[in-house]
């Protein structure tokens, strides 16, 4: 398990992406799969910065990864506010663009592009997001 802390600020997003791209390469993911992992991790980090830390200056996002025999596991931990992922509404995509609603898109994308997404909220340990991408399926 490789672990790295990042400041919970938008300025860290590019660095987090670079870190996770090289993890995806090590795990043998193809270019499209690496992009999807990058997207999911970026959306998760953005949610942590915006909602868990609410743009406060000293929050830390700890990003770790594990190379699996058949893919990549990413774990992101923050000490910010908790939330209930089950009640986050899904974005509304209608044929009429005027009615499209942006709510919950980050979480929706994470669930769409990753094979497994789970949340744990533990007092003392923080909010733990675990995501897995397998290299044998889209």
């Amino acid at each position: 398990m490789v672990k790295k802390p990042f400041p919970g600020q938008f300025g860290s997003l590019a660095e987090i992406s670079a870190y996770i791209i090289q993890a995806g390469k090590q795990a043998g993911l193809d270019e499209s799969q690496i992009y999807e992992v990058q997207l999911a991790v970026d959306e998760a980090a953005t949610n942590i910065i915006e909602h868990a830390y609410r743009h406060t200056e000293n929050g830390i996002i700890e990003v770790s990864y594990e190379i699996l025999p058949n893919g990549l596991k990413v774990i992101m931990i923050d000490q910010g506010e908790t939330f209930n992922p089950d009640i986050v509404p899904e974005p509304l995509f209608t044929t009429d663009i005027e009615s499209v609603k942006p709510r919950g898109l980050g979480l929706y994308i994470m669930r769409k592009v990753m094979d497994e997404v789970s949340f744990e909220f533990k007092t003392g340990d923080g909010n733990i997001l675990t995501m897995v991408k397998y290299n044998n399926k889209k």
Binding site: L13, S17, Y35, Q38, L39, D42, E43, T46, I97, V100, P102, L105, G106, I109
Partner: peptide
């Protein structure tokens, strides 16, 4: 790279 924040700007 285009995150959802960018897509919402375009939408």
């Amino acid at each position: 790279f285009m995150a959802s924040a960018g897509w919402w700007i375009l939408i």
